[in-house]
Design a binder for these strands. Structure first.
Length: 219
DNA sequence: ACCCAGGGTCATA
DNA sequence: TATGACCATGGG
């Protein structure tokens, strides 16, 4: 399990190299993106972030004073805009009450993760996105792409609880932040291009010698 | 005209 | 603990 998992990483990396993730400039924009991309394609998120920039409100202090309706209007392209307006404001409120990102950056990873999970609208995946990509903490993000790719490879079932998968991946990968970062980035940016259902298997980089431990599970 | 996308919350059993 | 409803836009 550990070996096969790392083998997938080596192949993804060999094929596509470092991704230099997360898209977005600076801690705050990364955190905003993590909330807005919940069950939403990144292209739509970019439009919403562009709206926030255009309105010059891409700062916690600007966001908390907006009316929910006005904020929702800016977030419209990213979908679930009413829900996300409330979540984004709750997150910004928490961030400011905590003394800002610089203060949070001093917290150990465990307590910081618990604090993030205490914010309404921040679940395990969003918290781990923020920990890994905004605070450079050694955690691995389990998302829909990860479940899909690795269940296709037959390495996991795919429907395990979030924490179980997270611990399995972290145990296999280790605590090197840049590896955790690049691995998840590769899965999201190129996971769809590999290990498609049987008929297309032969064309994917992972499948060129799939017999060596990466054979596909039947779908 | 579907189907799905870098989830999370809340109500129910 | 574990399902199901709900949130909503935009691209394929």
């Amino acid at each position: 399990m550990k070996r096969r998992l790392l083998s997938v990483y080596r192949r993804l990396y060999a094929e596509w190299g470092a991704q230099g993730w997360w898209p977005g400039e600076g801690r705050f924009e990364v955190m905003v993106g993590a909330i807005l991309t919940q069950n939403t394609s990144w292209g739509n998120v970019e439009k919403a972030i562009a709206n926030l920039k255009g309105a010059r409100v891409l700062e916690a202090r600007r966001i908390i004073v907006l009316d929910d309706v006005d904020l929702a209007a800016l977030l419209r392209p990213s979908g679930y805009f009413n829900v996300k307006a409330v979540r984004l404001k709750a997150f910004c409120r928490w961030l400011l009450d905590a003394g800002g990102a610089e203060e949070l950056a001093r917290m150990p990873t465990g307590p910081l993760r618990e604090a993030l999970l205490g914010v309404k609208g921040v679940g395990p995946e969003t918290a781990d996105d923020i920990l890994l990509y905004a605070f450079d903490r050694p955690v691995f993000v389990i998302d829909a792409y990860t479940r899909r790719l690795f269940s296709r490879l037959g390495i996991v079932a795919g429907d395990e609880p979030y924490e179980e998968l997270r611990h399995r991946f972290e145990e296999a990968i280790g605590d090197d932040v840049s590896t955790l970062n690049e691995y998840h980035a590769l899965i999201v940016t190129h996971g769809k291009e590999v290990c498609r259902p049987r008929p297309r298997c032969g064309s994917c980089p992972l499948a060129t010698d799939c017999p060596s431990g990466l054979e596909l599970a039947d779908e």
